[in-house]
């Protein structure tokens, strides 16, 4: 790969870094009591919780670091942190 001039880069490159590998605990989105409020997606520091066509939220486990903020904040208590199995 040729180096850029002056150490610049175009968008999209950070996606090469799969931060999901950092995870110890994993948020399990149960979609039982979920009200589709979207707070989980709003508070995720990774921005990796994506609204599906059915309006339920699903995290992109390639990037989810397992911080647990979504589970802590979920008003319906519908996200459970479970031990990551590797």
């Amino acid at each position: 790969m040729a180096l850029s001039v002056g150490c610049t880069a175009k968008p999209g490159k950070s996606r090469g870094n799969r931060t999901g590998a950092w995870r110890v605990f994993k948020p399990a989105f149960k979609h039982n009591k979920c009200t589709k409020c979207g707070l989980c997606a709003m508070v995720c520091p990774e921005g990796c919780i994506i609204e599906q066509e059915d309006e339920f939220m699903i995290p992109d486990y390639d990037y989810c670091k397992g911080c647990g903020l979504c589970a802590e904040e979920c008003p319906a208590e519908d996200i459970e942190m479970v031990k990551e199995e590797k």
């Binding site: 996606r15 870094n17 931060t19 520091p45 990774e46 921005g47 390639d62 670091k65 911080c67």
Partner: peptide
């Protein structure tokens, strides 16, 4: 602000 950044988990 894209995924793949290297902040700690739960970073404010």
């Amino acid at each position: 602000f894209d995924c793949g950044h290297r902040a700690c988990g739960g970073c404010g």
